[in-house]
Amino acid sequence: MTASVLVRPRTKADAAPARKARRRLGPGRPLRFGAAVGPLVLLALWSIGSAAGWLDSRTLSAPWTVVTTARNLIAEGRLQDNLIVSAQRAGLGLLLGVLVGTMVALVSGLSRWGEAILDGPIQIKRAVPSVALIPLLILWLGIGEEMKVITIALGVFVPVYIHTHNGLRTIDSRYVELGEALRLRPAVFLRRIVLPGALPGFLLGLRFAVVAAWLSLVVVEQINSTSGIGYMMELARQYGQTDVIIVGLVLYGLLGLLSDGAVRFVQRRALSWRRTLAD
C-alpha cells in the first residue's frame, strides 16, 4: 500500500462537470400528509356532485346533511353510546384473537410437534371465512356478546397466526447459530432473537387483523343486535335514513383508518432499525 493512496486529495463533487442526475429507483421522499390526499379528493367529488344536483339525496345524502345528522346523533348521545359498544366488541375480539394467534404461532413456530398438530387445522380454518361460521356460533353461544366477540376473534386470529408464524420461520438460521455460539438461555433467545425477528411479520398480521376485526364487527352487528353502529345503520335502513347510514359508514371508515394508522405508527417505531425501499 503506497502512502499516496491515503493522502490523495478528494475531488470536490461540485467541481465535477454537470452530469445528468441518476434516475432513482425508490419511490422518493415521503409526501407530507400524503395519506390524506386520496380521501380529500373523494370528499371534493362528493360535495361537487351533491351541490350540482347530480346525486339524489335519497341515494346519497350531501356531505353537509351527513354532518348535521352526525351532530344531532351526538347531541342525542346515540352516536357515542353505539360507538362505545362497537369499539368494545372490536377491541375485545381483537385482543383475544391477537393473543391466541400469537401464542399459537409461537408454539407452532418453535416446535415441530406444535406445528404438526396446530398448523393443519388452522390452514383448514383459513379456508372457511369466519363469517360463514356465524350460524354454528349462534347455535353454540346464542346471539349475545360472546358470539360477537368470538366471531371477531376468529377473524383476527388467522392473519396474526399466518404472518407471525411466517415471520418466525423465516428468521435467518445464522442468528439461531449465533444464539447457540453465545450459549443463550432459551428465555434470552426468545426475547432477543425470536420475538424481534418475528415482529415484522406480527405487525403485518396485525394490520390485516385490525381490518378483519372491523369487517367482522359490521357483519355481527347487523345480525340480531340491539346496540352498536351496525344496529344504528340497520335501524336507519328500515326508516330509509340514508344520512344515518352514511354517518355509520364514515364512522367505520374513520375507525378503520385510525386503527390502521395506529398500527403503522407502532410499526415505524418498532422497526426503526430497518432500512427499506420506502426510506
Binding site: 445464522r174 442468528y175 449465533l178 432477543r192 432473537i193 424481534p196 415482529l199 432499525w273 430497518r274
Partner: peptide, 11 residues
Amino acid sequence: VFQDARLLPWQ
C-alpha cells in the same frame, strides 16, 4: 467470530 459480523439488526 463469523465471516459475516452477524450482528442482530434489531439490536
